[in-house]
Design a protein around this nucleic acid. Structure first.
Lengths: 351, 351
DNA sequence: GTTAGCACTCCCTAATCGTGAGTGCTAAAT
DNA sequence: ATTTAGCACTCACGATTAGGGAGTGCTAAC
């Protein structure tokens, strides 16, 4: 998308880096004096001013008002993230901290991702987001039918993430135990390994192949499957939303309101995360800055996201959400590392 | 708690009522002129002023600063709610609206309560809260054991609210199908109807009664039950939190932060709701105002809560949370009515 | 190409000052 | 004995002003 970024000369790079870095840590517009002092440059403020004016003209910096210090634009952050920042690898302590958080009893993928959102919030001090493995990559490991009362039964599906989906379905006719177990066996034979969200279509397409007894079973099974509510939308865990209140950019109620509005619409949140990791199909995480989100009202925020994998396939994503002014060099490393942890744990869980 | 409320004479009541009512609708301190004008009293402002000074002395009203209009205190709201307000019954349209929201497909109690929090937020324009039936009132309707892999199995418990709890447990020794179904039958015979949160203790207490084969089964079952994670804490649904931003009392970031902090601690939210309905064991809803919550930082908010029932027992609660300045006369009716709806639907579901 | 010097811009804060809503008090009216 | 009119007083709020400070752009010297 930003393929041939106009090249900046070394001095411009140094100064852009300094401005972004300084602004990220202090949240104050950065003046020329500050740049030379805090970064020990062998230049005078006047020279820096000239360069800063150039950077502004090229769209990397911006003044909040005439004759104030400079602040990075989206483009400035982008250049910083892509070319300037030195990714700050985790310390051994941080690594151990993260691994420690996963030593708790985690029964299924949902537990793992809930814990992940918690962990991300805690360690990054931003809002932590974790999407549960998406329905299209969940496959059936086992199906069970379980009578609950005369006219109702529970359909239970354990998927390859250890999660149990359960649905109560109304039966038209009472099924005796034998019939039920026959049906159950049939479903397991036919549908093991099939993706959860196209059970019915799979069975349907095989319908012609069956004869007699099998066909009757299949038709009966289809009735049941069709009664199932459509698989729930992408589940997403969010934690640490209130941490955002500590950032000065959210002192403004109306901005805060926008973000919290997003947090209540879980679907949008999932979309955001997916489009973030979707844009770059790579294993590494992605950073999406401000207007790049293409979300009205969320121009002030950034998202750092990273996909996690099972059997080499990306099946979901995790990340953090916070103000544009984020310590990217630290957070990208944390999010990436956490994503690999999630992958590893899910693999163990799926074994 | 407020047993012998000092009696107010009719005029004091009228004026307190007027002040509270006016403040609730306008969010502005109420002056003596406003009272006579907006409520068409046959009194002069001066008289009203005298009475207001009396009410202030008695603790029902308060001035935000010398020589400003009056604002109700907690005690003022309390008197209003307990003695003055006329509960505003729902219109037929509102009734139908609520019932309509429950015509959607609701599979189990969790669905019902999620929908309830949504509905309450929508219709009251406050934050809607709904606690899922608490674990102590959930009893086992059926237990199923389901092998998932060689060394793991899923324990599935359907409760009387139609909910399925599932846990994966590690097995020490592989169980063949026969052994598993024997165990499963045994569990169902022994534990049907027992409260979910004391399955293990029930079985334990009966242990002496068993002989030989039964005893071995029971011991095996206990191993399994003890591996189960302790039943999750009270699940609670919350929706419409961002609606609070529209209220002027939450223009102040720090106050907003307190409340949103509460919203992230679901346990505290459950406690709040429980203590609210717990204080008065009655079927009707309760109103808890400001400092009565005994929660630091939440002096500015009120909660209206109402329990819902199954088989005559209160098994959970729903409610709304918002600024102290709330249209109680309307909201109490809505919350109460919704609670009876929830009771009705759960009964149907549990049939 | 770099830097010192300087005038200029604009935010921020504090201080000042009406204005208006609302009060408490007193004395007159009912 | 209440109730009310009259009046001086209080205090928040908004607009205005002034001073200080951080930072800029530009020009001219290095």
């Amino acid at each position: 998308m930003h393929a041939q970024e106009p090249a900046l000369n070394p001095r411009e790079q140094t100064i852009l880096h300094a401005v972004v870095h300084s602004y990220i840590t202090t949240a104050e517009p950065v003046g020329s004096r500050t740049v030379v002092k805090r970064f020990g440059l062998e230049l005078s403020p006047a020279t820096v001013r000239n360069t800063m004016a150039d950077l502004e003209e090229m769209g990397y910096l911006q003044q909040v008002h005439t004759s104030s210090g400079r602040v990075p634009t989206d483009q400035g952050y982008r250049y910083y993230v892509d070319y300037l920042m030195r990714v700050q690898e985790l310390t051994e302590a941080e690594r151990q901290r993260i691994e420690f958080e996963y030593t708790q009893k985690l029964n299924d993928a949902d537990d793992v991702l809930r814990q992940t959102s918690h962990l991300l919030a805690l360690i990054t001090h931003q809002a932590g987001i974790a999407e549960a493995p998406n329905a299209s990559s969940a496959s059936v490991r086992r199906i069970e039918l379980m009578p609950v009362s005369h006219e109702r039964m529970a359909v239970l599906i354990v998927d390859n993430f250890g999660r149990v989906r359960s649905m109560l379905v109304q039966m038209e006719e009472a099924l005796n135990g034998d019939r039920l177990s026959t049906l159950s066996n049939f479903l397991n034979e036919q549908l093991r390994g099939v993706a959860v969200h196209d059970l019915a279509s799979t069975l349907n397409s095989r319908l012609k192949m069956f004869l007699d007894e099998q066909r009757r079973l299949a038709e009966h099974a289809l009735q049941v499957l069709n009664l199932m509510p459509s698989t729930r939308a992408g589940q997403v865990y969010l934690e640490g939303a209130t941490l955002l209140f500590e950032q000065p950019e959210f002192r403004d109620i109306d901005r805060a309101r926008e973000v919290f509005g997003l947090f209540e619409e879980r679907d949008r949140l999932v979309d955001l995360l997916r489009s973030a990791v979707g844009e770059a199909e790579q294993a590494r995480g992605t950073v999406i800055i401000g207007a790049e989100l293409h979300e009205k009202g969320l121009e002030g925020i950034s998202v750092i996201a990273s996909p996690y994998h099972l059997d080499g396939r990306a099946v979901g994503a995790i990340g953090v959400l916070g103000p544009r002014r984020m310590p990217y060099q630290r957070l990208t490393a944390i999010v990436d590392y956490t994503a690999t942890m999630v992958s590893r744990i899910l693999t163990r869980l799926g074994g």
